[in-house]
C-alpha cells in the first residue's frame, strides 16, 4: 500500500494572551490509502490541532513552525489559495463533534447537498446520497432544517455531505461525543463502513479508547503534541509499549474485574510553551529514568510499531509480571 498522508515532524504554535502555546511538537504519522486510523489523546495532546492542520483550517493565531504534511506526496502548505480550496472540497471530508452546528441552520438539507454537489435540489441523486448514509424516509429528511433533526440523524447528514464528492481522506474529530451512547455505535458502524464502500481513508480523532479498539486498523496515541506510539490496534491494545499508552488503557473503567481497581495516572497532561527537550510524559511516568529527563526519545520501530520511549525495547522483552509492576528497579 502506498501512503496517502505523511505527517512529518509537524509543530504548530498558538499565540495566546498567556503567551505561546505549542500544540503540536514534532508529531509524525504516515497513513496508507484505505486505512482506518484512530488518533487518541487527552485535551492538550494536540489531536484536534492535528485534525485542523491537515486541512489547513487552523485559526489565524496559529502558526506552523516546523515540519510538513504531505497529501499524495504533495505538501498541503505549498497549495495556493485556489488549490487549497479545491483540495479541501474534493479530497477531504470533515466530520465534527457537533453535527447541528456543522450544518447551515438556514438551509434545508437538500439544498445543502445540492450546493455541494452542484446539482438542482430536485435532482434524484440527492436522495441516493441520503440513502447511502442509512437514513430512512429520505424525502422527509431532505426537506428539513438541521434543527429539526435528532443528533444521530444530523450526524448522518453531515457524513453524507462529507462523502458527497468522494473524498479520499475522511477526518472525523470526536464525531460521537455529543451523541447518546446507544446511537454512538450506529454512527461509528456507518463511518467505518465507508472505507470499504468508497475506498476512502478514515482518521478518527477521539478520546474514546473503546471505539478505536473496536473499529480501527491502526492506533496512534498522542501526548504532549507528539505521536508517542503508533501501530496496529490489536498489537498496541494487547501490549502497549509506551508507558503512557499503557497507563491510559488501565485508567479507563470498563475492562476491570468486578470489584477491581483502575489505576489512575498521577498528575496531569503538560502544557508546552516551546519544543520539549525531554520525554513529555517523564513527570508522570512510573518507568522514568534519568535519561528521560535529559533527552527526548526518538521514535523507533519496536515490536512492529513506532514508539517514542527510551525503555520501549526493555518493555517489549520484559516478562508480563514485570510490566504490571512497572517499577523503576527493572533496569
Amino acid at each position: 500500500m502506498k501512503s496517502l498522508l505523511r505527517i512529518e515532524k509537524i509543530a504548530v504554535e498558538y499565540a495566546t494572551e498567556g503567551g505561546r502555546l505549542r500544540a503540536l511538537d514534532g508529531a509524525t504519522l504516515t497513513v496508507a490509502a484505505g486505512e482506518t486510523v484512530g488518533i487518541v489523546g487527552e485535551s492538550g495532546s494536540g489531536k484536534s490541532t492535528l485534525a485542523l492542520t491537515i486541512g489547513r483550517v487552523l485559526p489565524a493565531y496559529a502558526r506552523r513552525v516546523a515540519g510538513d504534511i504531505l497529501f499524495d506526496e504533495q505538501s498541503v502548505f505549498a497549495h495556493s489559495d485556489s488549490e487549497l480550496r479545491a483540495f479541501r472540497r474534493d479530497e477531504l471530508g470533515f466530520i465534527f463533534q457537533n453535527p447541528v452546528s456543522a450544518l447551515d441552520p438556514t438551509m434545508r438539507v437538500k439544498y445543502q447537498l445540492a450546493h455541494i454537489l452542484d446539482l438542482k435540489s430536485s435532482d434524484p441523486a440527492i436522495m441516493s446520497h441520503l440513502e447511502r448514509v442509512g437514513l430512512k424516509d429520505v424525502e422527509r429528511v431532505a426537506n428539513r432544517f438541521p434543527h429539526e433533526l435528532s443528533g444521530g440523524m444530523a450526524q448522518r447528514v453531515v457524513i453524507a455531505l462529507a462523502i458527497a464528492r468522494g473524498p479520499r481522506l475522511l477526518i472525523a474529530d470526536e464525531p460521537t461525543s455529543s451523541l447518546d451512547s446507544t446511537i454512538r455505535d450506529q454512527i461509528l458502524e456507518l463511518l467505518f463502513s465507508l472505507p470499504a464502500q468508497t475506498g476512502a481513508t478514515l482518521l478518527l480523532f477521539t478520546h474514546d479508547l473503546r471505539s478505536v479498539a473496536k473499529y480501527c486498523d491502526r492506533v496512534a496515541v498522542m501526548y504532549g503534541g507528539d505521536v508517542i506510539e503508533n501501530g496496529l490496534a490489536e498489537a498496541v491494545f494487547s501490549r502497549p509499549l509506551h508507558p503512557y499508552a499503557d497507563a491510559l488503557l488501565k485508567a479507563a473503567p470498563g475492562a476491570e474485574a468486578i470489584g477491581g481497581k483502575i489505576e489512575a495516572i498521577p498528575g496531569r497532561p503538560p502544557i508546552l510553551r516551546e519544543r520539549s527537550e525531554r520525554c513529555p510524559f517523564a513527570p508522570r511516568c512510573t518507568w522514568v529514568v534519568d535519561l528521560c529527563r535529559k533527552q527526548r526519545p526518538a521514535s523507533e520501530i519496536i515490536a512492529g510499531r513506532l514508539v517514542s520511549c527510551h525503555r520501549a525495547e526493555e518493555r517489549a522483552t520484559a516478562a508480563p509480571a514485570q510490566l504490571v509492576k512497572g517499577a523503576n528497579n527493572a533496569s
Binding site: E42, L248, P253, I262, A264
Partner: peptide, 28 residues
C-alpha cells in the same frame, strides 16, 4: 480528561468506603 477521570473515580470510591455516607452517582 481521561487520566484525571480515573483519579476522581478512585477518590470517590475510596472516600465513600471510608466515610460510609450514602451516595447517588449519576453518569451517562
Amino acid at each position: 480528561d481521561m487520566s484525571v477521570q480515573a483519579q476522581i473515580l478512585n477518590l470517590i470510591k475510596d472516600i465513600q468506603a471510608a466515610q460510609g455516607f450514602a451516595a447517588l452517582f449519576i453518569s451517562h
